[in-house]
Design a protein around this nucleic acid. Structure first.
Lengths: 170, 170
DNA sequence: AATACACATTTGTATATACAAATAAAAAAA
DNA sequence: TTTTTTTATTTGTATATACAAATGTGTATT
């Protein structure tokens, strides 16, 4: 009697989209879009591209973007511990789950968490030496990431770009 | 013996951020940021503001942004059914879960799904009358949404904005 | 025709996120 | 001082998302 061995093939079907395509082509729209609609889509797609690019950088460090963000906030405290609500208000996207985020960082020994002696409701979260080292490793890659996109524009264009982004969302 | 009734108070602690703040103030950065860093943050934050604004519009219709996106893609087919991979490639964010997304729309009777007679591997997904009606209700609100942000800029600025966004992400 | 390969979609699982409610401590009011 | 209100954080639960693997069908090769 023979046992049939079923081979398993896995394919990575990458739906490749070159980022310099017009937004209409990316979403394969059949109609031409007006400027207002294009702007909304362009903002969303730019975020997608930037975020994806940075996620690739973080992957080898086993950090989610939010975890990285919290570490950076903690480093910004320069030794002073931060409590949960401070962390939350400094995050770009205010997730309601700072607790579980810090839990993950604790498991990786990148932060410490203690009850605040002055106010026992509060928590004191601090970045560890190990956490600082991880950030130090990421730092140059993060700068590279920012400059990678910035270099697509001249410095004058970049200024205008920042101003328009601020004006647009205001 | 008395039973103590514990009253429950729930507070909505909204961390209010006015969208016209500088990105440094929003993330409460202690250091001034260079243009490249600001650009990355501004793109991310602009997306957040735009997305949040649109989510508020969708809330009463009990649709997630992705579900809405799929419905729009199906309407764009103009009667011709779309199969799963067509839907997937037209979505802005290519989630690997078109199946479960369509499941949700099926439950709400906004779409139909049938096995393609020509190729039994494929599915034929179509928007229903009910789905079209929901979209028709959302349409004016979506246009308002796009114009709400676009109106912050002059039409010349909006053109530049779109071009810079395309250039930046390319 | 049998086997290998390719394609289209689904399912499993682990993790992330959103939102409401619970818990616990401090501050304010009665 | 007891009760109420506010603040700070955590927990429960439902849903979303990411990624790998599985399933089922069609096409190509031997």
């Amino acid at each position: 009697m023979y046992i049939q061995i079923k081979k398993v093939y896995t394919f990575v079907r990458t739906n490749f989209v070159t980022t310099n395509m017009k937004i209409e082509d990316i979403i394969k729209s059949t109609v031409t879009l007006n400027a207002a609609k294009r702007a909304v889509l362009n903002v969303m797609f730019a975020d997608l591209v930037v975020t994806d690019h940075f996620n690739e950088i973080l992957k080898p460090f086993d950090l989610s973007p939010e975890q990285y963000n919290v570490l950076r906030i903690l480093r910004g405290q320069k030794g002073k511990p931060a409590n949960m609500c401070t962390i939350q208000e400094r995050m770009i996207a205010k997730t309601s789950n700072t607790t579980r985020l810090v839990d993950k960082l604790l498991l990786k020994e990148l932060v410490t968490r203690e009850v605040c002696p002055d106010n026992r409701r509060k928590m004191e979260v601090e970045i560890t030496e190990k956490g600082l080292n991880v950030l130090a490793e990421i730092d140059p890659k993060a700068i590279e990431h920012e400059n990678y996109f910035a270099s697509k524009l001249t410095s004058e264009e970049l200024e205008i770009f920042n101003n328009l982004l601020e004006k647009y969302r205001s």
